[in-house]
């Protein structure tokens, strides 16, 4: 192989690797390490643009339901703060989905961060059970304005 051929092959390899990385960023989930150690679940949102005041359906995966023995709370977590927005019972979790609403009065404090995640936390020891993908917070919707 000539020097220019080697350079071309290396460049193509680098580009392919970068493309692979970018796809992995879009798809997500590649951090999950091994079969036994998954202790943090995933909350899956129906839409990753959240309107304050409007209910959002959340499904989940990978949560160890056996470990949950009392009510859990859903928090919105941003780079600067975590705000509790609702409580979820074990029965609600057992159904596979639950509904949360970002309250209108929380909009002000969440607004400055624009993006956040839902985090499901166990009441008893503050253990994190699951987190969602990142979502964008939209300006307050009609549910907040005409209430």
């Amino acid at each position: 192989m000539t020097r220019s051929q080697i350079t071309a092959v290396v460049l193509v390899g680098v580009v392919l690797l970068l493309v692979l990385g970018l796809i992995a960023v879009q798809v997500g989930g590649s951090f999950i390490r091994t079969s036994g150690e998954v202790r943090i679940g995933q909350l899956i949102l129906s839409n990753n643009k959240i309107l304050p005041g409007a209910p959002v359906t959340v499904t989940y995966s990978l949560i160890e339901l056996g470990a949950i023995d009392d009510a859990s709370m859903v928090m919105v977590r941003t780079p600067t703060e975590s705000t509790v927005i609702s409580e979820v019972t074990k029965e609600e979790l057992g159904s596979g989905t639950f509904i949360v609403t970002v309250p209108c009065d929380k909009y002000e404090e969440l607004e400055k961060n624009k993006a956040g995640r839902f985090v499901l936390v166990l009441n008893s020891d503050q253990r994190v059970l699951a987190q969602s993908e990142s979502f964008t917070l939209l300006p307050a919707g009609p549910e907040c304005i005409y209430r």
Binding site: E37, R39, T78, R117, V119, Q126, Q131
Partner: peptide
């Protein structure tokens, strides 16, 4: 138990 989830990764965004 409260920090055990950190074994698989961080709770995001970082605070």
């Amino acid at each position: 138990p409260a920090t055990a989830h950190y074994f698989v990764g961080a709770v995001l965004p970082l605070q």
